[in-house]
Amino acid sequence: MVDARGYSCPMPVIMVQKAVKDGAPQTLEVLVDNQCSLENVTRFANNQGYSVTSSQEGEDFRLVLTK
């Protein structure tokens, strides 16, 4: 899981990029705490061939990336 809460752009995308590059996981959970990071991580994941579902948990967002 990538916990990118508290980080602003582009750090959440860099963290996800590293996780994808290191392990090429079939599924990956990502936590972010702002709408901009949610959009950027979603766009990056889509561009990498992942489908993304997201849900709001209080102030945070949980994304599930699936290959």
């Binding site: 582009p10 860099i14 901009c36 766009r43």
Partner: peptide, 19 residues
């Protein structure tokens, strides 16, 4: 839109994202 000149060039270079 989150428009940002620096971010635009950075994303194009780092992620091949031209949004």
């Amino acid at each position: 839109s989150r428009m940002c000149m620096a971010g635009g060039i950075r994303d194009a270079v780092m992620f091949q994202d031209f949004n």
